[in-house]
Amino acid sequence: MTSVPLVPDIPAPPVIALRGVGLTYPGPPPVHALRPCDLVVRRGEFVTIIGPSGAGKSTFLNIIGLLDRHTSGTYELDGTDTGPLRDGDRTALRGRRVGFVFQSFHLLPHRTTCENVALALVYRGVGRRERMARAEQALRQVGLGARIHALPTTLSGGERQRVAIARALVGNPSLLLCDEPTGNLDTATADSILELIDELHRSGMTVLVITHDPAVALRGDRTLEIRDGLMTDRVAA
Rank of each mutant, 00 (worst) to 15 (best):
I49V: 15
A133I: 01
L108I: 15
Q137D: 12
D9I: 15
M231A: 09
R131M: 06
R94W: 06
P5L: 14
L218F: 04
R234H: 04
V117G: 09
G220M: 07
D87N: 12
L18F: 14
L224Q: 10
E45V: 07
L107M: 05
I165C: 06
L139I: 03
P52C: 02
V122H: 13
P152E: 02
H110T: 13
V122Y: 14
I50D: 02
Y75N: 09
R86W: 01
T206D: 09
M231D: 07
S203M: 12
L218R: 15
R131H: 01
V207L: 11
I193E: 04
L144I: 05
S53C: 07
A118M: 09
G157K: 05
Q161A: 12
A164L: 08
R147W: 08
A236Q: 12
I148Y: 11
G125F: 09
S104G: 11
T223C: 14
R202V: 08
D78I: 06
C114F: 01
L108E: 05
E180A: 14
A135P: 02
R160L: 01
D221N: 14
L61G: 01
V117H: 05
G99V: 03
L61R: 05
S156H: 12
T112V: 08
A33C: 11
V216P: 05
R43K: 13
L139H: 02
P13H: 08
A146S: 12
A146W: 03
R43I: 07
R90G: 11
A133K: 10
Y123F: 13
R69F: 06
R162S: 00
R129Q: 07
Q103R: 04
G127T: 01
H70L: 14
L18W: 12
T71D: 03
G83E: 12
I210N: 02
L77Q: 04
D89F: 07
P181S: 11
L224E: 10
T71L: 05
G73H: 12
G83K: 11
